[in-house]
Amino acid sequence: MKNATAAAGAFRTKRSLNLINNRLFTAFVWGVSAAIVLFILALLYLILQKGLPSLTWDFILGLPSEIEEGGGIGPALFNSFYMLAISLLIAVPLGMAAGIYLAEFAPDNKLIGFVRICVEGLASVPSIIFGLFGIALFVEMFQIGLTIVGGAISLAFLNLPVMTRVTEESIRAVPQELKQASFALGATHLQTIRRVLIPTAISGLVTGICLIAGRAFGESAVIILTAGVTTSGEMWDFNLLSPGETLAVHLWYVQSEAIVPDAVAISDKAAAVLVFVILLFNIVFRIPLWIKERRSK
């Protein structure tokens, strides 16, 4: 009887201790999460409050100035969107195709395992390495100089491993029951991928596209080495062989090399535009997902 009572008391004591530890750990996790969120919000506020209030359309669409104050970011902003669109047109289809192949068709052997290791390694390679590769390919081999097409394709190379890994993991995360049910209804493998796997994994795929879009839009090292630090001087220049300074590169140039009197004001406003556009990407890409979720409820 005494042994049973002692055991029950020890169990209650241990349970109470576990509850206390669980609450302490939960409080710690919430505290760390709240601190990170507050830090991010404070950083965004610090960047946006310096630049957004003084933004004007003349600055957003105006031509940059090398000497006089009052220059804009029009050509650099246009080049950012232009090169982003070209890089996404290359990286997204190829990355999704490679990820679907690795998830659905690739055999489980050492060669494919080595390929996955290589893809993961490329996804973590510093961007300047892809910039050096772009110089070797477009500047030295093809002799086309620092151009928009060279920068856009180099950005696509930079984001291709990331899109491949995100696609593979998103497809693998789809429950096998959905796939087997599709086969049981007579669907082919291609129909199952198109109508079951991709729609189910769309949230992960959109997240991957948001990641590579934000990375490409804010990238500077690759652009400096493959597209240059100047623009053609025209606002809407679609020539792929023109120099391709982007907004991120223009921000770096103004902060480090420019001699204009209002360099600090230009950098503050350019940084605000850069952050605002990247945040806008995440919202725009996720609107269809939010609409889909609301309709499915």
Rank of each mutant, 00 (worst) to 15 (best):
R172S: 06
A270N: 09
S16K: 14
A184L: 00
L251E: 04
R286T: 14
L155S: 15
F285E: 09
E257H: 10
A248I: 09
L122Y: 03
T192S: 12
F39D: 06
N79M: 09
R286H: 13
Y45W: 15
L190V: 10
I86D: 10
L38Y: 05
F142W: 15
I67N: 04
E169K: 05
A98E: 05
I171Y: 04
L240G: 01
K269H: 13
G186P: 00
V162F: 14
A106K: 01
L89M: 15
L111P: 01
L240N: 05
I278Q: 12
F138C: 05
R23S: 06
F59D: 05
A76R: 11
F114D: 00
I67E: 00
E68L: 13
I171K: 01
V206G: 04
V32N: 01
A152I: 12
F39W: 07
P288D: 08
P199C: 03
T13D: 15
W57R: 07
A156R: 12
A265Q: 05
I291M: 03
I60F: 11
G233V: 01
I212H: 01
A271K: 11
T192L: 03
I100C: 05
F238W: 07
D268K: 10
P93E: 13
A184N: 02
F217S: 14
G244D: 00
A271E: 09
L280M: 15
K50R: 15
V125S: 02
T188Y: 00
R295C: 03
A6S: 14
I67A: 00
I90L: 15
F130H: 05
T13Q: 13
L41G: 07
G74Q: 04
E177Y: 08
P126V: 08
L24G: 02
G145K: 00
V119N: 02
I117K: 11
G99R: 03
I283S: 11
T164R: 03
I112V: 04
L55S: 10
G218Y: 08
F130T: 05
F28E: 08
I223K: 11
S267P: 04
L251K: 06
V249L: 06
V149F: 06
S16M: 14
A152H: 02
T207N: 14
L48H: 08
E120L: 07
A272I: 12
E293F: 11
A152D: 09
G74D: 11
M163C: 12
S33A: 15
P261T: 01
I86W: 02
L38G: 06
E177H: 05
